[in-house]
Amino acid sequence: MSRREVESQLEQLASALKTMPLSSEAAWDRVWAQMKMPRQVNRWPLALSMSLVAATFAVANVVPIRYHHAPTLRAAYLPAPVLVERTPTPLGWTAPAVSGATAAPPLRFDVAPVPRPPGS
């Protein structure tokens, strides 16, 4: 069978299908009746946007986001303050670190070096 024969058979098939009886009038009545019916409102975009809003609120309420936006919460997550006791000694005042509520290391401030007098 050649390619041309197949093409010819397909064309004949198309002509054959044109002879197929169709109830166009009944079909038109159904289509027009459906056209006259009020359109169904598509509600899924509204439902989706509501869900997105709900999800945003739910996510916004979790700690990592609140941490950045609520100062009191951020303060609560900071290391506890350290109690520093200063005791007098014969050599002067020392500031031994005494851990407070936590074992966090004490804050240390480096003393800035005093500039030497010129010529020394």
Partner: peptide, 20 residues
């Protein structure tokens, strides 16, 4: 069956439709 009837009227083979 409507397609079969149309094919038969034109003397076409059923295999053409099935192959399609």
């Amino acid at each position: 069956r409507e397609v079969e009837a149309a094919l038969e009227r034109r003397g076409l083979r059923r295999q053409l439709w099935q192959a399609l």
